[in-house]
Design a binder for these strands. Sequence first.
DNA 1: TTATTGACCATTTGTAAAACTTAGTCAATA
DNA 2: TATTGACTAAGTTTTACAAATGGTCAATAA
Lengths: 206, 206
Amino acid sequence: MARPKTLTNRAELIIEAAEELFGRYGYERTSIEEIAKHLSIGKGSVYLDFRTKQEILFEILRRHATAIQDIFKERLNNISGSPLDALRKATEESVMTCYDRVSRDFHTPEALLHTSLEMKSHFKDFYVRKRELIIGFLNKAADAGEIKKEIANEETAKIIIMVTTTIFPPYLNCTEFNTPVTRELLQARASKLLLLLVNGLRHYKG
Amino acid sequence: MARPKTLTNRAELIIEAAEELFGRYGYERTSIEEIAKHLSIGKGSVYLDFRTKQEILFEILRRHATAIQDIFKERLNNISGSPLDALRKATEESVMTCYDRVSRDFHTPEALLHTSLEMKSHFKDFYVRKRELIIGFLNKAADAGEIKKEIANEETAKIIIMVTTTIFPPYLNCTEFNTPVTRELLQARASKLLLLLVNGLRHYKG
DNA sequence: TTATTGACCATTTGTAAAACTTAGTCAATA
DNA sequence: TATTGACTAAGTTTTACAAATGGTCAATAA
């Protein structure tokens, strides 16, 4: 008779425990043994679900990225009025979701900076999909006559991502110094920046 | 009888020597003694003109910043046609000048990243003046009827700086990976980004 | 028979002391 | 009085060692 599994959702529990401990003590200072102890399982069991410690971190980050992605996807599939407005609002919402998740998990600014730069290169796919979603919005905007058909392409999507880089972490802005980026400040900035992106200086109303 | 000065422009020569050596070996790996040796003067003489090593670095960086600032200033004072176009072209030019100076002096990407982040906080004034110059362009654009009078203010200038952050060093962009930022790539990006900034998605023609 | 475990190994990381480097000073010198 | 380079204090690298931890696997439990 085979030994029955004691936990059916162990991988899930490991993710949850890791997320809490990484958030509390940081990635480096949390050991696999701590995670196992937290769940009252053996250290070896963690390696039945994940091949490396980094794999756990990536899974956590992948979920954050996916959640933020889903905001875009959902908004793109439920456009009622102006597609351009929908893109603006979807970006605004994902900016704030990103902020909330990041400020919950990463406590020191350096950790955020390091992680962001380190990790970004591991999330190529994420950026490719984001670009495709933006192109989706642009196509709908072109159909609705809001923008020129010729600019509903990858190039424009890339520029949009560039323009909105500062409102995503790490928040490396130079307009204010020694001022921490509060939720309110970021929201105000993002809102204005996105309005400017849509209307341009020529038609921007503030 | 007092000993006569052997060098009248020693400070200037130190700056030049430091610029060359910092560029070749990096700031940390260049010692004050090396700089002195390079000019065949005593180590102590360097300290007659500069109180610290860092002061030399700051002076070099201050000159770069000023040169880039001057492009803006000159363009602002010689607007013939559209002020908005002038702002666009002034920014484009300063982006490229910045690139050229930075790629000449900093050889490794890490050095650039580190220096940029480290130094930015020491150049508050630079950003304040840049903001003022941008407000200058906005005021002229408002006078010319190109933009609404209400948006010719500091807030808008801040957003413009945010939007253009990615085309200034450190070039932390995520649209391409493993692709070094070449001069041509940056020029194309900056040009498109600035057109989009002026016209907005609604009126952007690519 | 198979899921689980924790002792075990190899590598990394932390630490403490010694050796070395260098920014900045200042009494001696030109 | 302008300049210097030996000197000092502070910091950095090196080295040697100890502790911690990521990952494996033979033994164990169901």
